[in-house]
Design a protein around this nucleic acid. Structure first.
Lengths: 216, 216
DNA sequence: CCAAACAGAATTGTCAACAATTTCGTCTGC
DNA sequence: GCAGACGAAATTGTTGACAATTCTGTTTGG
């Protein structure tokens, strides 16, 4: 096991370990339910166990890692039921963001949303589900951002982090992009029309359909 | 500075410190923006600095404590703006819970809600704002609980913990209990009628009014 | 008299070693 | 052949000491 990761210059060790571990989990490099032994991680990332420990505590708070007393840590497995519950929360919170974004967004920002819409349409037409999935992410992120609702933004970041695996599965399902495209376009239209209620309704309709798809 | 707190027998030191610190902050024993020096806390609670450190990381994740690199921790101060943003999130999440509770609650649970309603009415009639505030808390907690929505429950717990100070101020405002009582009774009625949409609307109406009151 | 540089103190970040707990394999006794 | 006790290995929890950083009050040069 060579220590490939550089100790990193000015960066604080714990932050480094935290970011590294988080990325590894989010990118699926750690198998679900894989055991995370503090000593191994410490050697792998070139930091001490104390830093790894602090990072694991943070990751537990973010819901990415599960820790049991005296038994160790492992990558948290999100069941389909949990994914549904999480998406329900996303539904109402993103609905709130969309309603606020419809009021608060600048004209330039609305134009960006429109551009994203055409890009998404193109991605579906070209049959590129991965590109579409990325644009999808970007759209949701932009709406959150434009809302100016800091608290909701933080909550949604945490919730989304827990859904990476399920999101992957969903994006590759045949026919799914075509279906969700219309819903996304409706969201964009409602926000651009500066209609808060319509925007919230559109987001809810979209995520309701995502929930149904999750329950395959 | 005598170390009054017993080291606690079987309890893990970190958990002990965490619970103790959390209670202290929530009960307002720590002044807002007060500095939290790890060494002092360690001696005060009779645990080592590492345990305090872990507890502080957890409390930061819960939004109760603010930590700055190499500068230390302090009790987080929630501005009115933040309180509004938090309550907006509460609004949509509790709306979700109420809608689900209207469907999922058992008949006995609905009876409990009705009893709570009469108790609240009595507390207002008797002019006991503190009792009313506690019943208020209990009502919101029960609705959350009956919804069976674990994710929303966790998010709401975190959000509510950040609002203790503002909640206090609001409860003692003259005329406020009378005003909110009707909204609470409407919530109870809608859930008892097993009408999800009405329940969500009632919760939203109530918390919208709370937001207006916050912006005094 | 004021601004910038400079020590000193206070505080957090990091480290390596030690103690406590759990798990898993083995062994004994029936 | 199997149930339960026993013990070794692995892993986490805890401790105290050390290093790095930041803040504060003072001093010095203009």
């Amino acid at each position: 096991m060579p220590k490939e990761a550089r100790p990193s210059t000015g960066e604080q060790a714990k932050q480094h370990a935290f970011a590294q571990l988080r990325q590894a989990i989010l990118h699926g490099e750690m198998a679900p339910a894989q055991r995370l032994v503090e000593n191994e991680l410490a050697e792998q990332f070139g930091v001490t166990r104390a830093s790894i420990r602090a990072a694991l505590i943070d990751l537990e708070a973010q819901g990415l890692v599960e820790r049991i007393r005296n038994r160790g840590s492992r990558v948290r497995v999100v069941t389909v039921e949990e994914a549904v519950a999480i998406t329900e929360c996303r539904m109402v919170l993103e609905g709130l963001c969309a309603a606020k974004a419809a009021v608060a967004a600048s004209d330039e920002q609305l134009t960006e949303l429109a551009d994203l819409g055409t890009a998404m349409t193109k991605a579906v037409a070209d049959g590129e589900p991965m590109t579409y999935s990325e644009l999808n992410q970007e759209l949701h992120a932009k709406i959150r951002q434009y809302s100016g609702q800091q608290t909701a933004l933080e909550l949604l970041d945490r919730l989304n982090a827990q859904l990476v695996r399920h999101r992957f599965q969903l994006a590759l399902r045949p026919g799914r992009p075509q279906h969700s495209l219309n819903e996304h376009l409706a969201m964009i239209e409602a926000v651009r029309a500066r209609d808060p209620q319509a925007a919230e309704a559109a987001v809810r309709a979209h995520l309701t359909s995502v929930i149904e798809a999750l329950r395959d």
